Simulated scan of single mutants.
Amino acid sequence: MGKIAITVEQQIKKLKHRGMEMDWGDEKAKEILLDIGYYRLGFYWNPFEIDKDHNFEKGTKFSNVAKLYYLDTDLKHILSKAINRIEINFKTQLIYYASIKYNKNPTWFADKKIVSSNYVDKFPNYYTSKFKSDNKPIKKHHAKYPNDIYAPAWKTLEFLTFGSVITLYKSLHNKELKETISNQYNIKSIKVFENFLLTILFIRNICAHSDLLFDSNTPKEIRTTPIIKFNNNNRHCLDSSIKVILYFLKQISNSRHDLINNEIKDTFKRLKDNSFIKKIIVDKIGYDIEMV
């Protein structure tokens, strides 16, 4: 929109001048622009631009821009549900197996004999006064046991972020313990397991912060493994990340896996006959839409 704010009527005029068809009518376009915002929606008409002046490919319709936005939003909602299930399950496995192994040390996560010094030294950055006051079980624990530095793992880890818990897993010294946890997901290689967790975290953060999902590529290549077949061996695209998420979900619950997988298929299927968006689904997301 440049450095000067313009009215929604001017926004529509500008889009028309650049070659966009207002096929839903100006009033519907105005409603959508006031709902989503010109700047945010711009990320979704970017794939239709053909030059540095931001002119649009011939046949670019406002409806397709909106449909791409809704596709992205729907996928975020679906994947967020799946990742939430995975996050809770992973926390449970880590808490259970580590706490059983170190059953005489309820705060094993802060023991340098068990976890890397770097993680232990940084843990007070997570376990702040705000952390204690914001989470009732932690607050109640310290009210009852004022001399405890930390609450036990089964309380503390429940309130850590997914990223913090993944870092804790990576920081464990005991390889056998790490393998025990990865084996709960039928993954033998710790490196593959950690790579998959970081892939899920990457998508989780996009969904949580309303970033662009359809055009996302993992910063690190997803590791090859016989348990997942990636389309065209593209191990950065969103479809490959979705396959990792679905794999984890299947290890946790077949019914949940099937439900989420069907929701994803139905979301893409609705746009199968739209040539503009189909191209984005195939080329950018990497999804084999002919399979739905």
Results as ranks from 00 to 15, higher is better:
residue 206 I to N: 04
residue 186 N to V: 08
residue 166 I to P: 00
residue 171 S to F: 00
residue 267 T to I: 04
residue 231 N to C: 05
residue 267 T to D: 03
residue 211 D to N: 15
residue 262 N to A: 05
residue 204 R to S: 05
residue 210 S to V: 02
residue 198 L to N: 14
residue 174 N to D: 14
residue 251 Q to F: 04
residue 247 Y to W: 10
residue 258 D to N: 10
residue 159 F to E: 10
residue 177 L to P: 00
residue 211 D to Q: 15
residue 158 E to I: 05
residue 206 I to S: 00
residue 192 V to F: 02
residue 248 F to A: 00
residue 173 H to R: 06
residue 253 S to T: 08
residue 200 I to G: 04
residue 153 A to M: 06
residue 244 V to Y: 09
residue 178 K to Q: 05
residue 165 V to W: 00
residue 212 L to W: 09
residue 236 H to V: 08
residue 211 D to P: 02
residue 192 V to Q: 05
residue 144 K to R: 13
residue 176 E to W: 05
residue 257 H to K: 15
residue 229 K to T: 13
residue 243 K to Q: 12
residue 234 N to R: 15
residue 168 L to Q: 02
residue 140 K to T: 07
residue 187 I to Y: 13
residue 206 I to H: 08
residue 234 N to W: 11
residue 141 H to G: 03
residue 240 S to E: 08
residue 257 H to G: 14
residue 227 I to V: 13
residue 179 E to C: 07
residue 234 N to H: 13
residue 217 N to A: 13
residue 178 K to F: 03
residue 171 S to H: 00
residue 236 H to D: 11
residue 239 D to G: 15
residue 183 N to M: 13
residue 236 H to I: 07
residue 226 P to M: 13
residue 219 P to Y: 00
residue 210 S to H: 01
residue 263 E to G: 08
residue 153 A to N: 06
residue 189 S to D: 14
residue 178 K to Y: 01
residue 203 I to A: 09
residue 220 K to W: 05
residue 245 I to W: 04
residue 207 C to D: 05
residue 143 A to T: 04
residue 257 H to R: 15
residue 240 S to G: 04
residue 199 T to I: 08
residue 149 I to N: 12
residue 194 E to H: 01
residue 174 N to F: 02
residue 263 E to L: 12
residue 205 N to E: 08
residue 143 A to Q: 09
residue 164 S to Y: 07
residue 198 L to E: 13
residue 238 L to S: 15
residue 212 L to C: 12
residue 181 I to P: 00
residue 208 A to V: 06
residue 158 E to K: 10
residue 156 T to H: 01
residue 261 N to Y: 14
residue 155 K to V: 14
residue 184 Q to R: 11
residue 252 I to Y: 07
residue 262 N to C: 01
residue 169 Y to Q: 05
